[in-house]
């Protein structure tokens, strides 16, 4: 899943960002390629800031996928039917797969996966704040698929056309799988809404909790998202935060009506003049609080990741030691053959 944290201002990167008017011939050539909508490939010349910015964005995206396995993984063991259990397990596995493609895409830029994971574990790197909310009920599994993955798709589809080839190609596959995730989430919520009164109440209560955090996933308003300008110039970001958020609201409101659910916003109303739904103000204090580490589950999520990594240290060491032994034995066997 995609991350609003990508649009959180990064002061160091901002200060280092290049400006087209003072560009060197190499940079001018690069910007001309972007303007022609050409894909930049790993072996191509690229400005250092473009490379760094992509590593930051792709790795945050990868971290989001991997941390995103935790809230939904919480319900695998309690899924209420075998079919739902199997689907959820496959879905969470997909998120791990997305993490793997994305770490690989970041590696094409010269980053090391170990360093990227270290940055996550030390708290230096961000991941999507949406995963710092708890999954209190089974309905949350449906709501995450329907709303959170729905928002992720809005964010990710434009990335399939982003300027960096490996990232764009990874996103094509990711988007196909996210589309399945979104439909399975909607199907869980649909079943709840068509079920008993208790099930429907479970769905409504879940949507009430997830609606606003989902809208926050698109990041700060365009006027407050200085990073967006540079990412647009580099052909990484194609559509602004506010435009994506509006698209999401416009698509989702009729889906909620179809399900018979209400969205927790008294100001949500169709505006015929704009041809869009108007919606109420987002609580940016909450957004920043969670981004800065003070959300309901920030500590738990990071702790779970660090513990899994630390607990697995001996496994990775054993694999490396065994591979080493095998390599040494192969060399020694080859020497014996040569000597013979």
């Amino acid at each position: 899943m995609y991350t609003q944290a990508l649009d959180v201002p990064d002061i160091a990167a901002q200060q280092a960002a290049p400006h087209a008017h003072g560009a060197s011939p190499a940079e001018a050539n690069f910007l001309a390629r972007i303007a022609r909508d050409e894909k930049i490939e790993p072996q191509d010349e690229m400005p250092e800031d473009y490379r760094k910015s992509l590593i930051r964005q792709i790795s945050q995206h990868a971290h989001s996928e991997v941390v995103g396995m935790l809230p939904e993984g919480n319900w695998i063991t309690r899924a209420p039917s075998l079919k739902r259990k199997e689907i959820l397990l496959a879905k969470v596995q997909d998120e791990g797969g997305h993490g793997l493609y994305l770490y690989s895409a970041a590696e094409t830029l010269g980053a090391s996966r170990d360093d990227l994971v270290d940055a996550l574990h030390s708290g230096k790197a961000k991941y999507s704040s949406i995963f710092n909310y708890p999954t209190d009920s089974w309905a949350d599994i449906g709501t995450i698929g329907w709303l959170v993955d729905g928002a992720a798709i809005m964010n990710q589809v434009p990335l399939c056309r982003c300027s960096y080839g490996p990232y764009a190609r990874a996103m094509i596959r990711v988007c196909k799988e996210e589309s399945f995730h979104q439909r399975q989430g909607f199907d869980i919520v649909r079943a709840l809404c068509e079920g008993t009164a208790a099930q429907k109440q479970m769905a409504q209560e879940s949507v009430n909790r997830w609606w606003w955090p989902t809208l926050m996933m698109f990041g700060p308003h365009d006027s407050d998202s200085e990073h967006t300008g540079q990412a647009s110039a580099w052909g990484i970001k194609r559509i602004s935060n506010d435009d994506l958020r509006q698209r999401f609201v416009d698509v989702t409101v009729p889906q909620a009506a179809f399900l018979g659910l209400t969205l927790p916003d008294a100001l949500l109303k169709w505006n015929a003049d704009r041809g869009h739904y108007d919606f109420g103000p987002i609580d940016w204090n909450e957004f920043w609080r969670v981004v800065k580490g003070d959300g309901p589950c920030n500590a738990e999520r990071l702790n779970d990741r660090v513990q899994a990594f630390d607990d697995g240290g001996w496994v990775r060491e054993a694999a490396a030691a065994h591979a080493d032994k095998r390599a040494r034995r192969a060399v020694s066997a080859a020497s014996v053959r040569i000597a013979a």
Binding site: K85, L89, G99, V315
Partner: peptide
């Protein structure tokens, strides 16, 4: 096996172990 999902010692192993979980839950079904 499904209890390991998201907690494996490496991402590749997490995915591999989940494959086994999916296989055997599919057989059970």
């Amino acid at each position: 096996l499904s209890e390991w999902c998201g907690h494996g010692p490496a991402l590749e192993e997490d995915i591999a172990l989940t494959n086994t979980a999916l296989d055997v839950i599919g057989q059970a079904r």
